[in-house]
Amino acid sequence: MRDEAQHSPTATARPAPDPSVMIAMRNVAKSFGPKNVLVDVSLEAPRGQSVVIIGGSGTGKSVTIKSIIGLLEPDAGEIWVDGVRVDRRKRGDALLARFGMLFQGGALFDSLPVWENVAFRLRQDKTKTAADCKEIAVEKLRRVGLKPETADLFPAELSGGMQKRVGVARAIAADPEIIFFDEPTTGLDPIMSGVINELIRELVVEIGATAMTITHDMSSVRAIADRVAMLHEGVIQWEGPVSEIDSTLNPYVRQFVQGLAEGPIEAVR
C-alpha cells in the first residue's frame, strides 16, 4: 500500500550509512489499514552499543523491531544492517544467524521442553550432538538465573517471569552479534531485573554485541543504555546518550522519565 509519489527512496538514493553504524532506519513508515503506526522513523544503532527505545504503550516499538528483523515489511523507507540494505527482501539465513530476538510475550514453543527451546538454533548445526546442545542451553539458563532442573520442564509449567527469562536465554543461545530485547524485564522481580540488565550490559561490553532493547522500566534504561530513543506518534521525538535523559528539555522525554500524567503525551490514547 505504499504511495510511490510521496516516497520514492530509489529516486533519491542515499549512500550507505557509516561503517560504525550497525542498524540504520531511514524514514520508515508502517501502517495497518487506516492506522499509521510508524510515520517517519529514523534511528541508528552504533556498532557494539546498546540502544534503548522508550515510548508509550501502543506507539509502535515492537513494530519497529519487527520491521528490522524482517517480520513486518515497512511501507516506505530504508533499513540497513551492517552496511547492507535489507528492507523489501527476505532476511537470508546468514543474516538471521547474526540476530537474536526476545519476543515481548516470550513466544516459546510450547511443544518443546525448555532446553530445546533455548537450543533451537544450535540444534540446526548438525555437528553438535544433542548432549552438547543441552549443555550449552543449561549454561545459558544459568546466566538468566534459572536452575538446570528447569531445562526439562515445558514452557507451560513455568511462571511468566521464568518464561521471559527462557526467552532471553534463547535469544542469546547462539551468541548473536545483534540482539533485540522486547521488554526483557517486564514481569520480573527487581533482583531478576538486575540479573537481566547485567547480562545485557555484559553482552554489549564484553562480547561487543549490538543491542536494541525496548523497555518501560527507567531503572533498566539507566542500567543498560548507551543511547536512548523516544518513540511517540510514529516519530523518534528524541535520541541521545543516556546521560542526557534527565537534563534534556524535550517535553516528551521529561514527561516519560519523570512519569507525569500531565504533559504533551496524552494519558488517554
Partner: peptide, 20 residues
C-alpha cells in the same frame, strides 16, 4: 488450534527468526 495459537503467540514469527 495448535498452529493458530502458535501464530497468535508469535511462535511462528519466532521460528522465522530462528531460520526455520
Amino acid at each position: 488450534a495448535e498452529i493458530a495459537t502458535m501464530r497468535v503467540t508469535e511462535q511462528i514469527d519466532a521460528l522465522v527468526t530462528l531460520s526455520t
